[in-house]
Design a protein around this nucleic acid. Structure first.
Lengths: 101, 101
DNA sequence: GGCCGTGTTCGACGTTCATGGAACAGCGGG
DNA sequence: CCCGCTGTTCCATGAACGTCGAACACGGCC
């Protein structure tokens, strides 16, 4: 299951930065941030294989950047904005203010 | 030479995040940020070998996070705070507000 | 039950990376 | 001139990473 990955107790700076320091993952986070609604794994705009996508989601989940909850047949992903803002206020703002591509 | 590495024209988000997403490098940046003065490569508080340290400095330099200028017998490193703030305002603040090595 | 859509897991492959030792270059001081 | 200090480069090694295809698990739906 997707929710099998435990949510980290405290957000680790290195883990979060490593999770965001990848073009594909940063783009996923960007899409989550733009819509601000839960997005199923298969609905993202990306060119990588679905197994690769699943791996990236796992990385983001383990870093505490996103949360995944099953609903119906699909896994809905949400950005953990509140937790990120609590640990690193302004981080995503700083990254995406100029982050294109 | 240290100054042989050209300063990147525009700061790349991925490169900056990758540069900061390493415990050793993040600690180097933290030390530079705390003192806010130029620090020679050998003056940093770290446990890695000097060749490893040189490699990390190269990474930080190529990402545009730090600048190195030779003076006397040693290479003085400075944090490129202005450029970082211009490209990603509040990034370092967000990272180090809670980043306790 | 059988099928299909959705995600995850499992190798596997190639690349990148962090690390350290050794050798080298530049520079200053005796 | 030679020695010591500082930092870089070269090479090697082991680990981690990104990528994909195939196989599997789960849940609706006909």
């Amino acid at each position: 299951m997707a929710s099998h990955t435990p949510v980290p107790a405290a957000l680790d700076v290195i883990a979060v930065l490593q999770a965001l320091a990848d073009p594909v993952r940063l783009d996923l986070v960007r899409q989550l941030r733009e819509t601000d609604t839960a997005i199923a794994c298969g609905r993202f705009d990306t060119r990588v294989a679905k197994s690769t996508l699943s791996h990236h989601f796992k990385t983001l989940r383990e870093a505490g950047v996103i949360a995944t909850h099953r609903e119906g047949g699909q896994a809905l992903n949400t950005l953990r904005s509140a937790e990120l803002e609590a640990s690193f206020p302004g981080l995503l703002d700083a990254i995406f203010r100029r982050a294109h591509s």
